[in-house]
Design a protein around this nucleic acid. Structure first.
Lengths: 258, 258
DNA sequence: TCGCAGGAGTTAACAGTGTTTGCTTACGGC
DNA sequence: GCCGTAAGCAAACACTGTTAACTCCTGCGA
């Protein structure tokens, strides 16, 4: 987002310009479509010329990547806010009475994900659509790091869900070893992020959780990308029944929010 | 694909040129990436110049749409072939003994879908990735019609699955009316395609089936688009456990194929 | 306070894109 | 065999991302 503690006036002005470039680019991308966010259009909007932008971004693609990273971060913030608002929902909505907080948090985050996608389809495409040409998911890519921060919101809730409300799963031995070893590595990275509690989650539970995430992604992506048009005109109610089914897989009872 | 019964020599030559343009464009798109399939590059490859292509396609975007439609049709043909090969699988693979044919057909088709996506990632992007700018899914769009032909392979198997092996579902009344009405319309269109048998499928079963399709799409799309890289390096084994879970939802027992 | 290094921004240009216009050429149907 | 029309081309237009060379200004160090 913004750099930390710019020392001199020069750096401050520079950071402000970087932010303005990204803001204008995002506005063009959202309002006029992805192909409208050309360097010349962005520069024109800012009262300068295209080559000047190269003082701030080494290429158009790098600017694009910065927009992806920022969108990831905004989405992560929205999800975190929804999670943190779950307590309020739990306190005010009558039918929520007695629900475990972590369950309400998961439902709120899932709904916030869909709502964000519906409200910001262009940004959703930007982030979750076809990646740029054969994207080499470099670990030092800022967009990749931002993607991890986004995913952490869901996984953190899930780790807590398992700690508080474990659901019955098959024994780990039932998994093919080729999958088990991958999930073990993934679980190790979760321990680094969320502490020892993550180490207690069985691989089969992670398997179920990943499937839930795939389901959530698939549903929202097909909706935004118009791949559900062949059968549904409004995917909203279908999202409800899908959340309910998803809750059954996770051993929790789904209760509609809002 | 190819026109039906070209009368004169002129039309025959023309159809051959159209096919060559699409073949060259697809080859460039697959081998050099989507942005390499420019009109000039295609024309150069064919020993002609870019404006000449306008005799065959009114715009670059129309050529693109034709490629989408063709890819849909090729995929549909692959799925149909996998379905028709299920009898052979049933006869030769020992552990398949006693399985209902329709179940093997569904599994074969699902696996063929993933295998095709893995073998043709660029074509998968072409068809299932971010659609062209705010795609207006016109009913007269050939790509849309091809998409319906593709979907029909899965839905036909599903209608037959229900007729032969219905699984327990919740009563239709449990669905929110906003969803039920949409599913009713969709079921009516299925009756037009597959006959009266489709009319007997409960709306709740269609709800389950759609969710299965969303799961399948989400899994394959996330794999091709590299959105599973954060947790898996090879999505193959995860696809297996997902197919098993998917089978449970449909009340069938999953048996690995090949 | 002053001088200057270096950052910011410009113009001009290049190679590429999709697309249109006007032209020539060649060939299939009458 | 002629003719009309389809096929294809060269040139041009308005774009795109990107580079090079240049000017100007300004914030910083002495």
């Amino acid at each position: 987002m913004s750099t930390d503690a710019p020392v001199g006036r020069r750096e401050r002005l520079r950071a402000a310009t970087v932010d303005e470039i990204k803001a204008v680019a995002l506005r063009l991308l959202v309002e006029e479509g992805p192909e409208a966010a050309t360097l010349r259009a962005i520069a024109r909007e800012m009262g300068m010329t295209a080559p000047g932008l190269y003082r701030y971004f080494p290429s158009h693609e790098d600017l694009h990547k910065a927009l992806v990273a920022d969108s990831y971060d905004r989405l992560a913030a929205v999800l975190a806010a929804a999670r943190d608002g779950a307590g309020q929902v739990l306190a005010t909505e009558a039918r929520m009475a007695g629900k475990p907080l972590v369950v309400v948090q998961l439902v709120c985050a899932a709904k916030a994900f869909r709502d964000w996608a519906a409200a910001h389809p262009q940004e959703f495409r930007l982030v979750f659509g076809t990646p740029v040409p054969s994207v080499t998911h470099n670990l030092d890519d800022p967009a990749h790091a931002a993607g991890m921060r986004f995913g952490a919101v869901f996984t953190e809730i899930f780790v807590r869900l398992w700690a508080e409300l474990p659901f019955p799963v098959a024994p780990e031995e039932s998994l093919p070893e080729a999958l088990a070893s991958q999930l073990r590595d993934y679980r190790t990275s979760l321990v680094d992020l969320f502490g020892e509690a993550a180490g207690d989650v069985p691989l089969t539970a992670i398997d179920v959780f990943l499937r839930a995430w795939v389901q959530l992604y698939g549903l929202v992506a097909m909706d935004v990308f118009n791949h559900l048009h062949f059968c549904l005109t409004d995917a909203g109610p279908f999202f409800e029944t899908s959340l309910a089914a998803l809750g059954r897989d996770l051993g929790i009872e789904y209760v509609p929010v809002h």
